[in-house]
Amino acid sequence: MPAREYYLDDGRWWDAPVGTWRDGKGRPSKVLPSVEELASALVTRVVLATAHRDHDTSNLNPPDIRVGGR
């Protein structure tokens, strides 16, 4: 399941694993967002993928594995 990231206009973002809002520098936010701010939050869907360059899934050498996002 793709992850979802939530961002506010002022740079705050939701850190789901920890369950807290963070400021633009990654520190826990001292101010919770208002209902109005939450209504205008940007939602980004995060999808990560890996690929084997030689198409051999048994080859786990780091140069053969490419990590990318969409």
Rank of each mutant, 00 (worst) to 15 (best):
M1V: 04
P2S: 15
P2N: 15
P2M: 15
A3V: 01
A3H: 06
R4Q: 02
R4G: 00
R4F: 00
R4L: 00
Y6C: 11
Y6S: 12
Y7N: 07
Y7D: 05
L8G: 05
D9M: 08
D9T: 08
D9P: 10
D10A: 07
D10R: 04
D10P: 03
G11M: 13
G11Y: 14
G11V: 12
R12Q: 03
W13R: 04
W13I: 03
W13M: 01
W13V: 02
W14I: 05
W14T: 08
W14S: 08
A16S: 09
A16W: 02
A16V: 07
A16R: 11
A16I: 08
P17D: 13
P17K: 13
P17Y: 12
V18G: 00
G19E: 04
G19D: 02
T20S: 04
T20V: 05
T20K: 10
T20C: 04
W21M: 15
W21T: 13
W21F: 14
D23Y: 03
D23E: 07
D23T: 10
D23C: 07
G24D: 03
G24L: 10
K25N: 11
K25G: 10
G26V: 09
G26M: 10
G26L: 06
R27C: 03
P28C: 13
S29I: 13
S29P: 01
S29A: 15
K30H: 00
K30E: 02
K30R: 03
V31H: 12
L32H: 01
L32R: 06
L32C: 00
L32S: 04
P33V: 13
P33L: 11
S34D: 02
S34N: 07
V35H: 12
V35P: 09
V35W: 09
E36G: 14
E36F: 14
E36A: 15
E37A: 05
L38Y: 01
L38G: 07
A39S: 09
A39P: 02
S40D: 12
S40T: 10
A41P: 01
A41I: 00
L42C: 00
L42W: 03
V43D: 01
V43L: 10
V43T: 07
V43K: 09
V46M: 06
V47D: 01
V47K: 14
V47P: 04
V47M: 11
V47L: 15
V47T: 07
L48C: 07
L48I: 09
L48F: 02
L48Y: 06
L48S: 05
A49G: 11
A49C: 06
A49F: 10
A49V: 06
H52E: 05
D54M: 13
D54N: 14
D54Y: 12
D54W: 14
H55T: 06
D56W: 06
D56A: 12
T57L: 09
T57Q: 10
T57N: 11
T57W: 11
S58K: 07
S58P: 01
S58R: 09
S58I: 13
S58F: 03
L60R: 02
N61P: 06
N61E: 09
P62W: 01
P62G: 10
P63M: 09
D64I: 04
I65N: 08
I65P: 00
R66V: 11
R66F: 15
R66D: 14
V67H: 11
V67W: 05
G68R: 12
G68K: 12
G68L: 13
G69V: 12
G69Q: 13
G69R: 15
R70S: 13
R70K: 14
R70I: 08
